[in-house]
Amino acid sequence: MSYEPTIIAFLCNWCSYTGADLAGTSRMKYASNINIIRVMCSGRIEPLFVLTAFREGADGVLICGCHPGDCHYHEGNYKCLRRYYFLKKYLTQMGMNTERMRLEWVSASEGKQFAELADDFTEKVRNLGPCKIKEAAETLT
């Protein structure tokens, strides 16, 4: 069985989502494992979403926002950054490899960087193997 990881990417509307669109309009090829969910700002992304994604079976979660200082809403990305580190610590405690979760800044002009990031992250998650959270949480033993 060849394992294809499923990855959920939360992208902010202004920088990263536009950057992903740019990757599209530039016809840059990247792994089809990345599934994008749009939010207005990375500041909207909260642990609940990430945890739910893992619980529902995602193998990796990618979070992208504007570069520090470039947030469309001034500082939403910093809030995202703080939650990201918080979540990392919590997930480590829950015995999860936090490499399954990644935060990167992607600007609207960085279509190429997004495509490369998508490929790179997919490869990393592929190497980590399937995430067991769904299984662990739903199997009562």
Binding site: Y3, T6, N33, I37, V39, L48, F49, T52, G57, A58
Partner: peptide, 25 residues
């Protein structure tokens, strides 16, 4: 957050993964 409520985003995640997991194999 109107139009980006918890329920809207969580349902989106769930809907996505319900189909996407078929991709795994």
């Amino acid at each position: 957050s109107r139009h980006f409520t918890d329920n809207q985003i969580l349902s989106q995640i769930k809907g996505l993964l319900s189909k996407s997991l078929e991709l795994k194999e």
